[in-house]
Amino acid sequence: MDHKITMENLQEIIQSIPLLSASASRLLQVTANPDHELEEVISLVKTDANLTARVLKVVNSAAFGLMTEITSIDRAISYLGERIIVSIAIGDCAGKLFEKELSGYEAAGGALWKHDLRTAIAARELVVQSGADISPDLAFTAGLLHDIGKSLISDYLKDTAPDAVSQISSQDSYDYLAAEEKLVGIPHTVAGYELAKAWQLPNELCEVILHHHKPSEAAEEARALTYAVHLGDNIAMLGGFGTGSDSLQYHLDSGYNEYLNLPPKVLDSVMLEVDIEFQKLEQSLEGMGG
């Protein structure tokens, strides 16, 4: 049985996926710029009536337990923070991709969204704790998008999970990326990168998507961010939120020490923070991804 995906096939798959909305696309570009102002985010959201309505719905959801209803979009955005606005915008446009059952990885529908959300929270927290000169909210966005390629290649990987897993345990494949490449020709990182380019995502995000399992290969300007997502991804998998058969089937790149100055026992506090924050976000963004 041969399920190989060519680059042409991949482009066809990508063309069948809806583009990001203009406001979501613009929002990702604006928030990737380290010098942007919150006002720019607010005026962008205001141009999109659907997004505005979703943001107001989320801020007034039970998860935030506000005593009085917030009806002003300005106040809603400053209360929720950029990362939640970005999550809502991405979930609105690409919810189906995140929600999809990843049958090729033997993972249920919604597993990708949960994994991505936990990676995002962990990456953001690692940036905060390391004091690195990276925007914590950009780390969150990058975490949210890092594995998007899995939903593109999953159908082609159907019934290959036992083979992939045994290739890795017998050391015939270095990691799950290598197994994906052998089985279907294109690993999820490359598939995600091509989608990110088609979506015209900012360069840092494209780099993270392509290199999150080998951060040392990311372009210098995106390397620290890629390391943060690499570690966040591993933390999500260690926490029991992988995306099925590929969970923990990758190598840790300890080179992060050069880019992120993490305190000892950082893992304990980040894992705890991820659990607490995930509960809150998952509840407030319910129905967004999975």
Partner: peptide, 14 residues
């Protein structure tokens, strides 16, 4: 108590 492949001390949480 699983660990990441090539784990270092920090990541040996399992």
């Amino acid at each position: 108590g699983a660990n990441v492949m090539d784990s270092n001390d920090t990541f040996q949480i399992g």
